[in-house]
Design a protein around this nucleic acid. Structure first.
Lengths: 216, 216, 216, 216
DNA sequence: GATGAATGAGTGTTCATTCAT
DNA sequence: AATGAATGAACACTCATTCAT
């Protein structure tokens, strides 16, 4: 079992190298095989095609993170909190609302992303041309569902029905930005420690933005 | 004169179609020519190569916008304004500081981008593989130079020398986010009117984020 | 008349450049036209095709030199000289036989070649692929006709009929070598003066070779 | 084993045909494949590129012959032979000097060339445009190194320092001519037997030329 | 005399993929 | 489990040449 999977491992690690350097489209299966020291036939024994090979590198972490987002971000909000928006300030906002929890979730996600840094780097920045090329859009949608609810509550709306086009637009942007923060972190921080250090400002920025939008 | 440039125009518009659908790398010159109803040789009469064809679609608007950014964003700040940071609030910040001007510039840029929507769509989202593939990074740098100065002033620093790694990181992020806002607008709004409507919230979000970071 | 031929001249001189750099086959008419600052159509007004353009550069000097070779080298020998071969030595050979005259002819050719250096350079070293690609073979044949006769005389043969296969082979080689000397001179000497200086040794070499062959 | 390499062999032999007919540059890989009855992809399985295909035809014989030339021609001369140049005649020169040995080497080379006739034909007359295009210049250099030393000895010079520009020129020419003899032989003789028959005169010619130059 | 436009066949090369063994 | 061989379509690009104007 050790022996038989060695080829697969070689393939996988030289695939990481090639995809990272050239991106999905420009990556060459030939090169991957040459680098791994096997023939193309071997690759096709382990993987269905180029997309499947790329998928083998990113699919598991992707599923896990979607679960994490799904479980936490999309969970129903307890909207009977009786908030008085006038007393919201940047410093107490976190305790009064779900944002504090969100940030804990975010940190969990960051930690998970860094535990699978290579995979997410591939997924978030090198997937153009593969079946994952619009994966971040998909993740935005997940987050957006959550932030919509939060927005409705904070705005004091009765239901999502009251959201204007402008409301929806800004919520979509904030959700997009949330995902972008993850991408930025994973592509600009060398390790979790560094990431956590930078996250403070990022969180401040986001919450500040949120509140400004709410109070507009 | 109408007649003689018809081929070039056909080529250009079928290039727009192909690049938009497949992105630079996967776009096929053969397809572009076939769609335009000419042979590949004709294409090479008008354009030097694939990169030049793409460039013909985006280069002029790009140069103009870089000038706009260069002229306004990178201009030296008048830092002798004697600001009292304690009295800064989201509502008066704009008048006290350069941000108000920035937003006017931003609106000018948005208008210009929409006057050349197709070009910027290509440039900002379909250029991977072309010589323009890191153009948004370049634009981030231009903006970053400006925001660095603004940040130093608002933080009350004596000079850029006092900026910590964390300061630099967040300024880079904000600059990146600024460019991302433009991209988001151009890819999500159907026209300038729509864009200007959405910009209000975007601006609020950004200024809110800025101030939150400054006051952290 | 001055004006109208200017384009032709530009074309011609940029053709020289291109053919010299890349040789006939790899030379590009496009480049030639671009360098001359005219369009391809203009080229086709003055010249029939690529071969004709190349021909315009070399054809006249070529014809003249073939005449020179024809007139002098192929002229009938006066074979009634009553030579006593036993008294031939490298030093008196020239006066007793036609070789002295040959060398004068050769020098005349060298002078002519240098007066048209560019043309002959093209013709002798860059013509592969054109209709002139075996021109030196042709010139060898002209010279060979002459040297055959000379050989027959020097060998004391009654007629060409007595020449063996080996005789013919070496005469062909010597003729080939004669042409090669011209080529070597034109490609390795910067001017006529230099050429004449080097010719002394070349002539000594050739005559020495000749006699050695004759006396074998 | 017979079967599996059949495609490669077909490719190789139709490559020989195409290169021989058209020369390197004008040869078409497509034609070669068509003639061999395979697709272009197959060619690229066996060979890296056009140059490599050509190289597969000529590289091994080339390396071997360079070794032969290197070993024998470039070997240091025993210059302490105390030659009396005044007694040199075409008939004893060979025994007194290194020329006799040289000719044996030359004959060995001729035999080797004929054992690989096709390869050398390609290499010496059809390589223009390939990476071997100046291979005969290179071989001239190897031979020239040797002949320079021989020349110095025969001229009675103390060292190479005494060689004039004219000396160098004629030595270069003789070296060039030596290589040209090989080329001439391989392109004009149908087999080794024929070649050896013709070599006698060629050798006489060359030695005669040498001595004439030395005694000038 | 010369342009600008266009052709169409050609170039070497690379690709993901297949499959008998 | 993996190889070696091969496919066939695609790629960007270059060529000499033509021709209406």
């Amino acid at each position: 079992m050790d022996n038989e999977k060695e080829t697969r491992k070689k393939l996988l690690s030289s695939a990481i190298k090639e995809f990272s350097e050239k991106g999905y489209t420009k990556a060459s299966l030939r090169n991957i095989c040459k680098e791994a020291g096997v023939t193309t036939g071997a690759l096709y024994f382990f993987f269905e095609d180029k997309d499947d090979l790329f998928g083998s590198l990113v699919d598991e972490p992707l599923k896990r993170i979607e679960e994490m987002i799904g479980e936490h971000f999309s969970a129903e909000l307890d909207i009977s909190k009786g908030l008085d928006l006038s007393e919201l300030t940047p410093t107490n906002i976190a305790s009064k609302m779900g944002l504090q929890d969100d940030m804990e979730v975010a940190n969990g996600i960051i930690r998970f992303i860094f535990a699978n840094k290579t995979a997410f780097d591939l997924l978030l920045t090198r997937a153009q041309g593969s079946r994952y090329e619009s994966i971040s859009d998909h993740m935005v949608e997940l987050v957006e569902a959550h932030y919509s609810k939060l927005y409705v509550v904070m705005k004091g709306y009765q239901s999502k029905r009251e959201m204007t086009k402008e409301d929806k637009f800004i919520v979509h942007w904030i959700s997009h930005d949330q995902i972008d923060i993850f991408i930025h972190i994973v592509t600009h921080c060398k390790d979790v420690k560094d990431a956590e250090k930078q996250m403070k400002n990022m969180i401040a920025y986001m919450i500040g933005g949120w509140l400004a939008v709410i109070n507009t």
